[in-house]
Structure formats: structure tokens, C-alpha cells
Design a protein around this nucleic acid. Structure first.
Lengths: 226, 226
DNA sequence: CGGCCTCTTGAGGAATCTCAATAGGGGTGG
DNA sequence: CCACCCCTATTGAGATTCCTCAAGAGGCCG
């Protein structure tokens, strides 16, 4: 989160820890955004349900992420945030956050930075949804999540991705049936293997190229690897 | 931009004004993000071109918008920003911005807020791209742009939207041919009329409902209208 | 053992695309 | 002022991608 040790300490000291189980709602769409949430363990999602019942997942959160860095500026939560797996979450009530922000202005920068990072992630997703076929679109999301979980994973390494095919479908804006076929296709190309929440990337270079994935947008610090 | 008069004055004083013509590039993808840009007049877009030549427009900017509030935190511009029409742009070199931010911490808040607002807009676009058919998706984008241009436009009012059908297609992630058919459909429903950059909304309430458009996410201040 | 969720595969259908041809408007040079 | 050109808009027709419905298999848990 790019915070100094002191700032992080101040933030965490003001926070309350809570545990959520799979599908528990942390923050309902339209509800008051009354605390800043930080995910310490597990995984979570932000989603919107449309009138026809269709669901779109807008963000996937992994340990270390803030869940609503931009939303605390707003009154109400624009999406529903819920747990993908058992999750440990820290929360700081907005009143306390406000006083912290005046005492420690550098925290504002961190929130701004986190907001910008999540906007970058959403931008790449938007590009995929708009202009990529299902195969590279799925490949890109897998690259992104694997990279965020484990920047330096090499060929053949496995990463735990707690997403079902239905959930992947709701991230990608396609049907779960099609996700299944696309996964089969990517497996057939020898790029990846994804089964029951376990992703293996066989050829990172080829996969990145196929997905047009460039991890630059996920870096918060100056380049530290390829 | 939610700045105090003094802060705005300080910001504008440090800025340099420039005029761009249609399709001029303000900031190239991958280029250094060396200044903060603010759009004063005209319109602009942020876009990404994929390897197959396909283009996706990620943001449309209107007067009053900052063009890269989150990107100044990063090294390089993630998208190409170019003018949709003749545009007047203020720019503040990042070095000067940095010193301004230390002198006037409240400006950080404004940049954070603007970053969060643009993330909100992108989130709604993402939802449309993922889960809405072309008709409500286009309707939603038209609602958004009309609202941003003129919050209080009523039924039958016209708004100048400097977008061709090709550009709308690149916003929506569909082909320009299909944009044309969808516009015809929306016209047939009596909701809107869009010809050569001029949008008329016949029935705002019906259009909002059809598009599932709720302007809440575009508000930076507490509610001031319906 | 039974139920439920996830995954897998097939088959027909719907939305959207690409290609192609035509029309309209606005600018520019002869 | 006209002719020409280019960009934009419009419409048709066939192709493609992805969807929906449906059925069955596999795993997990009470």
C-alpha cells in the first residue's frame, strides 16, 4: 500500500478486524459506505446485479488490497462487496479515518494511489470487455490475478485462484458455459491449466503475448523485474 | 473540481494553456506522463489500440475534467489521450505539481476525488460492456454524457455531443454499423434523437429507466436534484 | 445415500460482425 | 460555381461468436 511503517501502524491501530465467510456481504450496493475496508486474507469481489438478474463482477480483491478506497469519498456504495472465500478484513470507520487523514496527510496519498491502481485494473478489464475475444480476455484476467498474487511466478508454477467458472464468467461478461470451452481452448494451446481454483501457467511469455498482458500497469514502484 | 477558490487559483497560475485540434495527440500511450492536464474547452478521449488494430475508447473527457489525475502517480501513460474537437487544455508540469501538492495538501484531495470519479464512470461502463445488450448500453453512455454536460437538461432539450458513430462504437465495444442500427432502434422507441453530434432526449425518465441509469455515481456533492 | 454445486459437452438460436454497396455533407481546388 | 473527394451514415446479406437450454458426470457434505 506504499505506506510508511508509522502510517501503516496508525492505520492498523485504528482498525477493527473481522472475519467473513464465503458469500457474506461486507457492503451492500446502495448502503452507506461507512468504513474503509482492507483485505488481509482471503479474497473478495465487488459486483453489480442488473434488473434482469444478470451479475457483473467489477473487481476482484486479493490480500493487501483496499476494498473501497475511492468510495469513502462518496455517500453510498456503488457495488456490493462480498467475500469469495473466508476472509480477514480490517475496517476503519470513516470518522476515525477522517481524523487520521488530517493528522497524517501522507495517508491520503496512499488512498489516492490505491484508487488510481484499481482504476488502472478496471481500465484494462474494460479494454478486454470491449475489444478482445473471449480467449485473450480470459487469458488476460488470469495473467492479472496470477501476477497480483505472485509477481515472480515462473513457468509451471501453480497459483491458488479462488474462483469458480461461474465467477470467472461474471468477471468476463460471458456465460459460464463459454468459460468452460475457452478454458479447454487455452489448455489445448498449452498455455495454462485451471482446475478447481488452481492455475498453472505453462508458458508465461507465450501467455502474456497471447493476452497482450503487460504488467506495467500493476506496478506501483519503478520497474523491479522484466 | 471541488477546489477552494485559492487552490484553484494556485493551480491555474502554475498552468500553461494550449490549444489542440481534432485528433491531435496530447499524450501518447507509453509516453511519459509529465504533466497534469485539465480540459477547459472542447472534448477529448483516452484510448488503447490493440495489436489487431482494434481501438477501445476508455474515457471521454468534457470541459472541467482532468485528463490524467491518476496517471501522474505513474511513470508512463497507459493510454493515448487525443482531442475529439478543438480543445483548450491547461497543463501543469509534474515538478510544479509536486511542489504545489506539498504547499497545498487540499489539492491532493481534489486529485484523489477526480481519480475516484473517473473510476466510477469506468465502473459503470464496465458493467454495461459486460452485461448489457447494445441498446441499453448505448442509452446509458448517452445518459452519462448528457448528464455530465448538462445536469439539468429536461425532456426535449438538445445537447451537443461531439462524437461520430464510429467513435461511439469504440466507446461501446461494438461495430459502427451496429451503432447505427441501435440508434435507429432508440429513435423508434421515441427515447432519443441523435444526428451529427446533436442529442435530443425526448423522455428522460423513460430513457434512464431503459438504460438503468442512476446519476448518483456522477455526483460529487450531496444530492441537489431528483 | 441423497442433494447440491460445479463442471462438461451437445445442439440450436440470437446478437453482433464483416463485407459491400449506396447516399449525404462539407471542404477544396479548378 | 461546380466537380471531386473523403468522411460519415445507412441498409442488406451472409458469417461468426457467443448464448440458452438441456442433459449427464464428478465431487463434497450432511
Amino acid at each position: 500500500m506504499a505506506l510508511s511503517a508509522e502510517d501503516e501502524h496508525a492505520l492498523v491501530s485504528a482498525a477493527q478486524a473481522r472475519l467473513f465467510e464465503r458469500d457474506d456481504v461486507l457492503l451492500a450496493e446502495g448502503g452507506r459506505s461507512d468504513a474503509l475496508y482492507m483485505l488481509c486474507g482471503g479474497a473478495a469481489r465487488a459486483s453489480r446485479t442488473l434488473e434482469d438478474g444478470n451479475l457483473q463482477i467489477v473487481s476482484v480483491f486479493l490480500p493487501g488490497d483496499m476494498l473501497n478506497p475511492g468510495d469513502v469519498l462518496l455517500d453510498r456504495s456503488p457495488t456490493t462487496i462480498s467475500a469469495l472465500t473466508s476472509s480477514l478484513v480490517l475496517s476503519i470507520p470513516v470518522e476515525e479515518l477522517r481524523s487520521l487523514l488530517t493528522q497524517r496527510p501522507s495517508i491520503i496519498r496512499a488512498l489516492w494511489r490505491e484508487t488510481a491502481l484499481q482504476a488502472s485494473i478496471q481500465r484494462e478489464r474494460l479494454i478486454g470487455l470491449g475489444r478482445k475475444a473471449a480467449e485473450p480476455r480470459l487469458a488476460h484476467v488470469l495473467c492479472e490475478l496470477a501476477y497480483r498474487l505472485q509477481k515472480h511466478a515462473g513457468d509451471g508454477d501453480a497459483v491458488e485462484l479462488p474462483l469458480t467458472q461461474v465467477e470467472l464468467a461474471d468477471v468476463l461478461g460471458i456465460s459460464s458455459v463459454h468459460v468452460n470451452r475457452v478454458l479447454r481452448d487455452l489448455r489445448g494451446r498449452g498455455l495454462i491449466d485451471f482446475r478447481r481454483g488452481r492455475l498453472v501457467i505453462w508458458k508465461k511469455g507465450d501467455l502474456y503475448k497471447f493476452a497482450e498482458f503487460n504488467p506495467q500497469y500493476l506496478r506501483t514502484e519503478p520497474a523491479d523485474d522484466g
